[in-house]
Structure formats: structure tokens, C-alpha cells
Design a protein around this nucleic acid. Sequence first.
DNA 1: TGACGAATACCGACCGGTTGGTATGTACTC
DNA 2: GAGTACATACCAACCGGTCGGTATTCGTCA
Lengths: 203, 203
Amino acid sequence: MNLLPKGPARGDARKVLLDVTLTLVRKQGWSATSIDQICRAAGVTKGAFFHHFASKEDLGVAAARHWDEVTTPLFAGAGYHHVPDPLDRVLAYLDFRVALAEGSLPDITCFAGTTVQETYASSEAIRAACGKVIMDHAARLAEDFSAAIEKHPPRQSVSADSLALYTQTVLQGGFVLAKAKGDNAPLLDGIAHLKRYLELLFR
Amino acid sequence: MNLLPKGPARGDARKVLLDVTLTLVRKQGWSATSIDQICRAAGVTKGAFFHHFASKEDLGVAAARHWDEVTTPLFAGAGYHHVPDPLDRVLAYLDFRVALAEGSLPDITCFAGTTVQETYASSEAIRAACGKVIMDHAARLAEDFSAAIEKHPPRQSVSADSLALYTQTVLQGGFVLAKAKGDNAPLLDGIAHLKRYLELLFR
DNA sequence: TGACGAATACCGACCGGTTGGTATGTACTC
DNA sequence: GAGTACATACCAACCGGTCGGTATTCGTCA
């Protein structure tokens, strides 16, 4: 019989390890999450781990890319893309982020933001991988900002890239404040201020 | 003779341990910083450490309070307090933060923000201590926002507390993005957007 | 179709070093 | 001489990582 331990099916170990890594690191941070713990949670042994990843640092880089592969379809498939006006589309993106913010903190925060805070000085590879995820996400948002600037000339001269990066700044900061307060409110509040900024700037 | 190791003078161990903790944690994160490493950098043995702190968690709480004791005089003694108009005072506070942002990342980032990201789910004591530092700092800023709202009625109704917290959100998010990019620019850019928001809102 | 060797996926024991923490001893101060 | 402020030695558990082995899958050629 041998029912209980029940690891993943053959061939799935890598994906399960990456999924588990995202979950554990978002809750405990990067350094506090050990390879043993990841293996236990994934129902896999250390041998399997080091078959797929050369080191913990290698896992960090792979997990950042996996985070990108998980979140990109989530945003790409969201309804706000169908809003015709680019400014309204950006505001709808923020409404979507508000909807995502309903949930417990470990589920709504950003793997890349959490991890890069701990590794920016100790692992250039992980820092770069996390940075790329955030910058790529911002770059996609910048396209909408660019169209919004063209269609609705803002009161003051601002660049699309800068606005997109500022949006990520507010979100990442919202995560930090939410963790500090033990409550989503600062995150929701931050998004509300950002929306007001955009409306003051563009209308 | 016995010159080389040269620890701190008798009675100074606790303060040195706390100072070293702030430095190391801001660079490496909380979990990646070990008690042994802190003792080595402080020129003190483990016996001294556990004489002053009951556990690593206890150190975390004490370090958060120490962070408050270090930063509060820094802001209290800054020139922006002498700006007569409350709105200009807030904007001068942000200019002061821009000035602080010139420097290498480990020196300009926030101990409380860094630490709380790693500990919010694993240590309620550290989370609360870090949260209090941030909220107290915001509360002091909220007084200026309150006066600014009274003197310069904003275009839209906003609360002073919310604006003060949003300011901290932008700063904390700026730290994260700066670490992710390996460059202060997103932090400076974020503060610039925040200033524009306040000017659009209040003038 | 099936036999077979190679590559892949995974297991679990083991290693040296480090972790947070303790127990005991000692020098200095009041 | 009593309390404070350290130093030293030590511990079990855990850390990231290695290694020899096994089970499964796959390409290939008869």
C-alpha cells in the first residue's frame, strides 16, 4: 500500500519545488527558508533538489523566473486589458490590484520584492533575476501609460516609464507597510492615493 | 601588550552590539545575520551577547527601538522643522529625505522595513516593534500634514494620517525598487512623484 | 515488437561547518 | 562581598552540499 508520504509524480519535482519555494519564502523570507524545509513541503528528498538545482542561489534565480511565469499570465488574462481608454485601463489595473490585495498577507505579497531585499548585496544573480521580474512587469504597464500620456496630455511633463516604476514603488511599499501593521489597509490606502495622483495629473 | 582584538570598553558592549546589528541587518537581512557574526563585528564574545539579550528575537526588538533612538534625533534636528508654512515643511521633509538618499544602499535603507518583511509571520514581537517605529515616525509627520490641510484646503478630502502613511509607503517602496535595480534612482524618482502629488492636491 | 544501453529522475545516508543557546568561571565596580 | 559585565567552553540541531546507488524512461537497431 504505502499511502502516506506520497510525493509528486515522477517529472513534477522541479515545478513542485519552485511552487513551494514561492509560498515559503513569501511567508518566512529567503534566508529563513531552508532547502530541507522546501524538500519536506514538496514531498521530495534532497537528492531530487540537487538534481534540479546546483545550489540554493540557483534555486533563487529559477524561483524568480518561475514567479514571472506564474504572475504574467495572471495579469495578461485579467479583464482590465479590454478597457478601451488607456488611462482608464491603468486605473482598472489598479482596481485589479485592489482585488488581489484581498487575502492573507503571504498570499498577496511579491516574491521578488521580498527576496531582493535580503539578497541585493549578497547575490548579484538573485538580485538581477528579481529586478528583471519587477522591471519587466513595469515595462508592460508603461505601454499603457505611454498611450495615456498621448491621449490625455498630463498637467505636468512625466515619462511613462517613471510612472510605471512609481506604481510598482507604491505597491512594494504597500506590502512593507501592510506587513508592519499586520493589516492590508496601508496597501489599499496606498493604491487609492496613487489613483488620485493619476486623476489629478491627467484630468 | 595584547593589542589586536581590542573590544569595546567595559559597559559599552550593549550599544556596540545594537549599532553593529543595524549595520549588518540592513546589508544582509535579519535571518542571514548570525549572532556569532554580530559578536565578531562588535569585538565581543557570545557570553556578552547573552548577558544583554535573552535571545535573537529579544535583540530584534531592542534593535528596532535602538533604530528609533538613532533616527528620531536625526529628523528632530533637521532644518526643515523651521520652515513656517506646514505644506512647505512637508515638502522640505521630502527634500531632506532626498539628501539622505545620496549614499550607498545599506546606509540609506530602513532597518525596520527590512526586518519586518522577514519576521512579520514568525515573530509577533519583532513585527510589533518594527511596526511601531514606522507608525510613530508617520505620526510625527501627520502633525505637519494636519496643519497643512487646515491652512491649504486640498482639492479632495484626505486625512493627515493617511497622507503620512502614504509617504512612508513611497519611501519603503523606493528602498525595495532601489535594491532591485541596484541604483538609488527609483527612490529619488518616487519622492519626486510624491512631491508632485502633494502640490497637485494642495495648490 | 522487443531487447538493451544510456540518459534522466530521484533517493537517502553522510559531511564539515554553523546555528541559537547554555553552563560555568572570572574580573571589575560599588 | 555582592552584583554586574563580561569570557570560555561546550552542546544538540540544523545548515548547504556531496555522493553512491536505484528506479524509470527513452532512443535505437535488429
